[in-house]
Design a protein around this nucleic acid. Structure first.
Length: 673
RNA sequence: GGCUGGGUAGCUCAGUUGGUUAGAGCGAAGGUCUCAUAAUCCUUAGGUCGGCGGUUCGAAUCCGCCUCCAGCCA
């Protein structure tokens, strides 16, 4: 019976397979899909397929996060409603996953009525029992981040010349009593160390929840806003909308499927781990706790059972040394990634990324990997094996009757391949699983060369040895098609059919695997599995695709302007002494990401001034420029260097700073008024 | 600044509880076979295992200091 090893018998002897609920984060609907989204979702798809082949009852959820101020603003700038905007762009993601053939079971949107109903119901519940309360929140708010910032962050931003993005705000807000769940959270991490993977991420989470230092413990979490209108209204107090995390995280609950709770694996980028490993379980604890549960006492098993089994935090694909960023335009679009086929992209992403770590992406590495492992490796091995079967045995796989030392070694490797692969995959380690499987494939190429089937075929006396070699190659390819099926569904299906096998690989179960099962029929004609890529040609093609896409970012972006500050009288303004300056020297400040140190001539004196403009200007381009300087700004030290004065720049919240430039004939020292 | 994890062949990385000549893949060079996708296979590359000091019969592997990098610090 196919499901015998993975199912369990319930009540009346009905076989129920084990549920497997896997999620990706919901993607911010306004973003354009790139390699990061693709990686996460492909990983989830491979896990989903893998667990289906383990015989489990899989539910694979992904979706979009559709609320927030940015949506509101973008929609306003285009003169449409936020709902129209999200309806327009949400398919960007959904269609990509469909185009890639991902086996998503449900695509959740936070603007769905059922999601909103869940959020409101839970909000009301938690409010009633005191896990949510109303209070006043006061602090510095970063407009571009749409978040309050800490004092430390505020200082950093000021030092980087981003003070204009900060606004002092005081507003009424609903708070989630996160502080109450510290004890239970710590117990969760202790009891279930696999709750966060990889393990070094768990340490970060623990340290955050219980730093043991002077910072004190968890603080309550603001979960509503009055400054935003595009969101889920707080029931009964509709000038508030539910703020991002209480809205977004609950998608996993609102879109969950009957019988599949709790999630088995939740994939997240390392940047949002904290929200998933701290806030999310705390929300669930609040939702699932009952009267009489002691928050100071032991975490009840009943609660534990409602927690996601694993939050799997993966690293980022980097472009060269730096993080991909939309503003730098150095992102890898799906179209480029899928240029060599969906399965090639899937294989590369899962084979090359060490789960949890960052990885630099280059098209060279991408092509090298495909050529080495898919063309020269698996593709060529399949081609030569099938070709020999046809040439020497008319496609028929003869059952081996004898094994010499080399044959026995391969037979043993063949026996170990599946358990090793499955064990690694069960730890979500496709990188390791594929690495091990491909090491075996390499061994087979050596096995062929040593056995020299082309010589064996010339003498009938060696017929049995030849049969053994050919049969083992056949078995290895059949096994590979099965094991790697979840990673490369199409290629493995093609290989499966080349081996003369029928049915769909995806419909098979690992449990049914019999490595040495006889071949049901002769092999088919070998079709090239994966054509070798000519690097130079391919790089040109990629360049062309990128160039095609390049004009897109140049399309006018909506401005992200901060609100106008309150009025001041003339005398207040007149206190500011603005002068024309001439930049004489400029150099980068070591270790600083933003600062440039400049020597500026103000006519009456020369000064050292630091500016947070490294992202926008190279030092060499600054020398000789005329700038406007706040001449009477009190000196202050940054990065150990005293800066006397400030350069005026123009920008909105999203753009880089543009230096204000006086005309060429303005003399250093001229007063700006 | 605090905490954590790292710095191993050109590149990406393995290196179990310290022990004979420090490994793999890719890339590069030379050679070989011919079943195969100009593929495969074999050999080679002479890497102060970040630096200094210590423990030890013996350390990439333990300890200390230094240095550089990354991550987390709501």
């Amino acid at each position: 019976m196919a499901l015998a090893t993975s199912g369990r018998l319930e009540g009346h002897g009905v076989l129920v397979s084990k549920p497997f609920y896997v999620t990706t984060p919901i993607y911010y609907v306004n973003d354009k899909p790139h390699i990061g989204h693709t990686y996460t979702t492909v990983m989830a798809d491979a896990l989903a397929r893998h667990h289906r082949m383990l015989g489990e009852d899989v539910y694979f959820l992904t979706g979009t996060d559709e609320h927030g101020q940015k949506i509101e603003k973008t929609a306003a700038s285009r003169g449409i409603t936020p709902q129209q905007l999200v309806d327009e762009v949400a398919p960007n993601f959904e269609n990509l996953w469909k185009q890639m053939g991902l086996t998503v079971d449900h695509f959740v949107r936070t603007t769905h009525a059922s999601h909103k109903a869940t959020v409101q119901a839970r909000f009301t519940e938690l409010l009633a029992r005191g896990d949510i309360y109303k209070a006043t929140y006061k602090g510095l708010y970063s407009v571009s981040d749409e978040a309050y910032v800490t004092e430390i962050q505020a200082k950093e931003m000021q030092a980087q010349g981003l003070a204009h993005q900060l606004v002092e705000l005081e507003e009424e807000s609903y708070f989630f009593r996160l502080s109450s769940y510290e004890n239970w959270l710590i117990q969760l991490y202790e009891k279930c160390p696999e709750f966060v993977q990889p393990d070094f991420r768990l340490n970060e989470v623990k340290q955050f929840v219980s730093p043991g230092g002077e910072r004190g413990n968890l603080q309550d979490l603001s979960i509503s806003r009055t400054s935003i209108t595009w969101g889920i209204p707080v029931p009964g107090d509709e000038k508030h909308v539910v703020y991002v995390w209480f809205d977004a995280l609950l998608n996993y609950l609102s879109a969950s499927k009957q019988g599949h709770w709790p999630p088995a694996v939740q994939l997240v980028g390392k940047d949002i781990l904290r929200f998933h490993a701290v806030y999310w379980p705390a929300f669930l604890m609040a939702i699932y706790r009952q009267e009489g549960d002691d928050l100071k006492g032991a975490l009840p098993d009943r609660i534990c059972a409602q927690m996601p089994k694993t939050i799997l935090a993966h690293g980022w694909w980097l472009m060269g040394e730096t993080k991909m960023s939309k503003s730098l335009g150095n992102i890898v679009r799906p179209k480029e990634l899928l240029h060599f086929g969906t399965d090639a992209a899937r294989f590369f992403l899962l084979r090359d990324m060490h789960i949890g770590h960052d990885r630099a992406f280059t098209f060279e590495a991408f092509i090298d990997r495909l050529n080495a492992d898919l063309a020269n490796g698996l593709g060529n091995l399949a081609s030569r094996s099938i070709s020999m079967l046809q040439r020497y045995r008319k496609g028929v796989v003869v059952e081996p009757v004898q094994y010499d030392a080399a044959d026995t070694e391969v037979r043993e490797l063949l026996r170990q391949a599946a358990p090793q692969y499955l064990e690694r995959a069960s730890r979500h380690d496709f990188n390791g699983a594929l690495d091990g499987l491909w090491a075996f494939l390499r061994h087979l190429d050596g096995y062929i060369v040593k056995a020299e089937p082309w010589k064996l075929a010339k003498d009938e006396a060696n017929a049995q040895k030849l049969d053994t070699v050919l049969a083992q190659l056949y078995r290895a390819l059949r096994l590979t098609a099965l094991l790697a099926g979840p990673v490369m569904p199409e290629l493995c299906q093609q290989l499966w059919e080349s081996l003369g096998l029928t049915g769909h690989v995806m419909d098979l179960r690992f449990a049914d695997l019999d490595v040495e099962a006889p071949a049901p029929g002769p092999v088919s004609d070998p079709k090239p599995l994966f054509a070798r890529i000519d690097k130079e040609t391919a790089m040109n093609e990629i360049e062309a695709i990128r160039a095609e896409a390049a004009p897109q970012p140049a399309a006018p972006q909506p401005l992200d302007l901060p609100p106008v500050k309150e009025n001041i009288d003339y005398d207040t303004f007149a206190k500011t002494d603005l002068r024309v300056g001439l930049i004489l020297e400029a150099e980068e400040v070591p270790k600083s990401k933003k600062l440039i140190k400049m020597k500026v001539d103000l006519g009456f004196e020369q000064r050292t001034i630091l500016g947070g403009i490294k992202e926008a200007y190279a030092p060499a381009d600054l020398v000789g420029r005329r700038v406007v300087v706040v001449a009477n700004l009190a000196p202050r030290a940054m990065m150990g260097i005293e800066s006397h004065g400030m350069l005026l720049c123009a920008s909105d919240n999203a753009s880089k700073p543009y230096l204000i430039a006086p005309p060429e004939d303005a003399k250093p020292g001229f007063v700006v008024r």
